[in-house]
Design a protein around this nucleic acid. Structure first.
Length: 478
RNA sequence: CGGGGUGUAGCGCAGUUGGUAGCGCGCUUGGUUUGGGACCAAGAUGCCGCAGGUUCGAAUCCUGUCACUCCGACCA
């Protein structure tokens, strides 16, 4: 099928990617703006995507032994201040509550930008013995960070996320947890969101405020910019010491436990849009699509089309999130509409089909049409949903591969990006923060991560030419 | 936080020299249509972002302010 653009009121990606993005979030009815900058309404269609993501992730968390809890949204200033690096990292972007009613508060309260401090306070109260460990907690809440530049989903002042906070008897156990959760995020992105990611470690300068080490999954968007899709942190016992969390270990000696935290947010919805979307609108991965298949009855006035379409809906309802659109809009309008909303599979059913006991199935990502017997439609739709997932993943991976370049010098980096556009650049690094900063300064591309899967591209640092320690993935980030 | 752009009907926009507001889409009603954003007819919809100022008179000129947006800087 051709890839002709069918929707006129979406700005083309190539023309203006940022405008394309905001057109999509508005036209596909994912968000609405509000009178507070950076605070958005997540509309039913957008929220349904989030609910599906939550449901899948939550069961992955439960299956690995985690429990959900809910912390308050306010953090007293004194509590936030307990861990020095942590407060320095977050202070510039916290919102403060200074009054209760008309009374000025004794101590101002920060609206949580993240909840490490609250979990730590709680852990200090409930952990006494090695028998109390580990605690594997998670919460689904919103947090607030007073960002200067905001964009729907990608960077909003309030956003929804989950934050896992775990506490362990040994460093080893905490490190394993950090890696396990990073793996779960990667699995989720690839299997549910059809979004290929690179697992790696953040550099010292890029790690979480207060962490010993930070791991991340990085995805490449359609325009060649990188998106940090999820992070997992190992804290060592630094927070435990700052918050005086201790327990009696197996030798009955006082010990400090080791902690982790990890999170993904509604930013992933932005990632889906920029990974799979095209000039006709959204393309949603079937696992999280609010509507997986839409039935478009054609020429409803003729014969029993509508009745047949409703039967089809009933049949599919058992195993697929299906919707029938029997509104008065023309078929052409509906085709364009549901493509824009990213519905993975469309089922056309008209008089001609009914005569032949068939329907037409069209997949969103490639607009391929298949004629299917009505006797086999349930299987066929499920098969097509799988094809859409695989097709989206393959396309995204192809884009990432095409935009991944190996470079040996910063000049080469600049040249490659100028000629071919933004992307992931794989280049060797000596490990010094000076070089890391210099690369960003010269090329505009910062270090995204030190990938777990290493390769020896050269033996010299891309910046200073001294012996290289690791391969780093560089790129411009959202 | 620095630089640019934009605020007029639900959405997208026009509005000339300052004279009291219009177009397209959408919406409502009725009819004809229906396999890639249909057509005809009749309707409804405005604090011209907000606050001052100039003027007989301001969507239009001036000042301020707020919001949105893009590009930087900043940002687990």
């Amino acid at each position: 099928m051709d890839n002709k653009k069918m929707v006129d009121d979406i700005t083309s990606m190539d023309e203006d990617f940022a405008k394309w993005y905001t057109d999509i979030v508005k036209k596909a009815e994912l968000v609405g703006y509000t009178s507070v900058k950076g605070c958005m309404v997540i509309r039913p269609y957008g929220y349904a995507v989030w609910e599906n993501m939550q449901r899948i992730l939550d069961s992955m968390f439960k299956n690995t032994g985690h429990e959900n809890v809910c912390m308050p949204m306010f953090i007293p200033e004194s509590l936030l201040n307990k861990e020095k690096d942590h407060v320095e990292g977050f202070a510039p972007e916290v919102a403060w509550v200074t009054h209760g009613g008309s009374e000025k508060l004794e101590e101002r309260l920060c609206v949580r930008p993240t909840s490490e401090t609250l979990f730590c306070e709680h852990y200090s109260q409930i952990i006494h013995s090695y028998r109390d460990l580990p605690k594997l907690y998670n919460q689904w809440v919103s947090v607030v960070r007073w960002e200067k530049t905001t964009r729907p989903f990608l960077r909003s002042r309030e956003f929804l996320w989950q934050e896992g906070h775990t506490i362990h008897e040994t460093a080893q156990q905490a490190i394993e947890e950090t890696e396990r959760m990073l793996g779960i995020y990667a699995q989720f992105c690839e299997e549910a969101l059809a979004m290929p990611v690179i697992k790696g470690k953040k550099t010292e300068s890029d790690k979480f405020a207060g962490a010993v080490s930070t791991y991340a999954i990085e995805a490449l968007m359609h325009d060649g910019k990188a998106l940090q899709a999820g992070t997992s942190h190992y804290f060592g016992d630094g927070f435990a010491r700052a918050f005086d969390i201790t327990f009696s270990d197996r030798q009955n000696k006082k010990a400090y436990p080791h902690q982790t935290s990890w999170g993904v947010s509604t930013r992933l919805i932005g990632g889906i849009i920029m990974t799979h979307g095209d000039d006709n609108g959204l393309a949603l991965p079937p696992a999280v699509a609010p509507i997986q298949a839409v039935i478009i009855p054609i020429a409803v006035h003729k014969g029993n089309v509508l009745e047949k379409a409703r039967q089809l809906e009933q049949q599919l309802n058992a195993c697929v999130r299906v919707k029938i659109d029997d509104s008065d809009n023309t078929p052409g309008w509906k085709f364009a509409q549901y493509e824009m909303k990213g519905v993975p599979v469309r089922i056309e059913l008209g008089p001609r089909d009914i005569e032949n006991n068939q329907c037409v199935i069209v997949t969103r990502h490639n607009r391929q049409k298949t004629v299917v017997s009505l006797d086999d439609v349930v299987n066929a739709v499920q098969q097509k949903l799988k094809e859409v997932h695989d097709g989206l993943y393959a396309k995204a991976l192809e884009n990432r591969n095409r935009r991944t370049y190996d470079c040996k010098t910063t000049d080469e980096m600049i040249q490659v990006m100028a000629q071919k556009g933004d992307g992931f650049i794989r280049a060797m690094w000596c490990g010094s923060e000076e070089c890391e900063a210099a690369v960003k300064e010269k090329t505009g591309a910062g270090s995204r991560c030190i990938p777990f899967e290493q390769e020896q591209i050269s033996d010299k640092c891309v910046c200073c030419s001294k012996p290289a320690k690791t391969m780093v993935i560089w790129g411009k980030a959202y």
